[in-house]
Design a protein around this nucleic acid. Structure first.
Lengths: 215, 215, 215, 215
DNA sequence: CATGAATGAGAGTTCATTCAT
DNA sequence: GATGAATGAACTCTCATTCAT
């Protein structure tokens, strides 16, 4: 019935797995076809080129990523303009936790996105997919900034903080931390006593302290 | 003088330049040979394979990197056990500044290392080069931990901090932040009003506040 | 009405248009199907292969070509054995004019045939289509020979001419001239002052002079 | 010794043979390599692309063609401005004979050039090889025109002839005749009693009569 | 009858590596 | 030691043809 969609999925899944574990150049269309259990030529019925297939995988990763979830939160706020259950600080922290959670639950998607982001600079900024992922990132960043402003207003966040700069720092350092922790987890299996999740939780704890109004 | 060493250097330099600007797969042995002014076959007298050459370039980058400078500081400390000019907090901050400075002064080396780190997972942990870079990182991390402990002792750093975990967080988040800032600099040329260096300085400022004893 | 014939026509017409404008290899079955408004697979219900379809297009071109018109003239002559309105020379000239006129009125068909003729040598002489086009050419050639003989008899053409050889020369050189003129028209847009039609008319004029009895 | 030139020759010869017998698209680089007794990749050490190789074969054909020989005649005339041994008519006839002779002695080269000419329209007029072959053709055409003018002056050619138009006609019809005769030779092996050479000689005879002053 | 998804051989091209000189 | 011509496997992509629906 849904034969066409099924095959599309099979291809994406096969490609996903390979792109998760290898660089773009290291993955060949032949391998993808073989892993998907179809003929090489069939790939081109569903994707016009290797690049197209790759971007589709990235897109899927972006779609299920924290980005979308974060955007849901935005809408949530807009809808329940009050939502007084949580103050600004708690929302910022929630967002960070969501990000970390995502990177834990979907480690492969997370890696792919991180990798893709790292190569964006080489891609044409005219590429629709690139544009899409840009705009999503921007929305997310904007959201973080707004949450900080909200926290300052409701006095849950100290007021000597520059929302714009801090959002930038927070966003970047969280992204980077997660990457590094993942990396080190693989490299230094028994490096120190601390486990990845310990580190990340500790990070959240510290950041919370840093942000909150101390009085 | 020593013809052999000269040629070795020439090759490394040519390869460096190319690997700085292109992906591993985009750099061909022919181009390296041409840029080095030697024959393709000659490359294989000095390096057993493309991978070998690539790792040698990475090694050089690691060698001149902050890692080495940091290790110098370690020795410095060991030698001048007192060195009372600076307290622990100031030393931690100095180390962070040094890292950021390095990433600014040697952006190519920095990118190469960052890129390489990201691919380490795929390499055999038995690879001598991988081992070397591991041990360097470990030394550096150890050093950071010791500086934090020093700070706690001299009361320049608040005592409710776990040196091990915090060192891990600090190290990872700084690395990540620098990467992200560099990336965004390319992607969002006029994203917000804040310039990269502003962000990084702001980061140092915040971190300093976070660490220092507040009384 | 007859659905089957309609579809056959639609395919031929779509194929025609594409083969007029592109080489055999540049035309794909997919394009033909799309332009004909049918499915790819359907093509194979009407034509056993791409070659078969191509030859069918050529056949159609041959059918509406000067060849057929010339054969009509033959029949005309056979029927009205006298037809004294024109003498032999005039008839030969008419035939030449008809050929040139055809190449002007149906440039695409003409090109296709010319192109096809040039590839005949590769085709099996057993191919029914090849046989057909051979026999048509032969009939036409025979006709030209007869017209020359007629002209010698009615003294409109000089008698020191060998009808067989001259027919051959005339036929070949006219064919060739038309081809060359068309080619040069494309290549040398403003080559000389002379326009294609000028050249062809001049050719007819000269040939007429050459043939006619000078006394 | 001349290993490189030898291999270049071997490739050209293998390609030549294949391009003589097949269309551009029908000839594959694999076949050329196999026929030349080398590896596929080696082709690309000598020719940057299939097109490049094809054009090189065409160029060779052009170089040994009548075009060059005709240009030699031009120089001959310029040098021996008098060269009274032959009058204009005889020179025109010689040129035609040379052309026919060439097509007989180098039938494959001749076909290749004819084929190539037929595809020129599709090639970029900016292609250096295309430009070269254009300029050679133009020189040759100019030469023919001059010879006709010479003949009119020395009264060996009738003066009621338009040199420009007649040169065009002569050039095109001779080219076309030779092509057609070759074609028919293959197709109608025992067509009529007349052999190709008979036809061509007869053509020369007629043309000579047509041109010469009749008094 | 008609479809169009699927096939897979084969196209041109690149490039790390080898080896005779 | 140094060379660079030669290799051939692997790459992305195309397309005439088939066949289950």
């Amino acid at each position: 019935m849904n034969n066409k969609e099924d095959k599309y999925k099979k291809i994406i899944e096969a490609a996903e797995k390979l792109f998760f574990e290898n660089n773009y150049e290291e993955v060949s269309m032949s391998k993808i076809a073989k892993n998907a259990g179809i003929a090489k030529g069939t790939l081109y019925l569903y994707f016009s080129s290797k690049k197209d297939l790759y971007f589709s995988v990235v897109l899927k990763a972006l779609d299920i990523s924290v980005v979308l979830k974060a955007l849901d939160i935005i809408e949530d706020i807009i809808k329940n303009n009050v939502s007084k259950a949580k103050n600004g600080l708690e929302k910022v922290v929630s967002m960070g936790k969501a990000y970390i959670e995502f990177s834990n639950n979907y480690p492969d998607y997370y890696s792919l996105i991180a990798n893709y982001e790292g190569q964006k600079a080489k891609l044409s900024t005219e590429d629709p997919l690139v544009k899409l992922s840009y705009s999503k990132s921007e929305q997310l960043f904007d959201h973080l900034k707004k949450l900080i402003q909200l926290g300052i207003k409701d006095k849950s966040i100290r007021e000597d903080i520059d929302p714009e700069k801090f959002a930038m720092v927070l966003w970047s350092q969280t992204t980077g931390l997660v990457q590094q922790v993942k990396l080190r987890e693989v490299l230094f299996k028994n490096w120190s006593g601390a486990k990845p999740l310990d580190i990340l939780n500790y990070y959240i704890e510290i950041t919370q302290k840093t942000l909150q109004k101390t009085n």
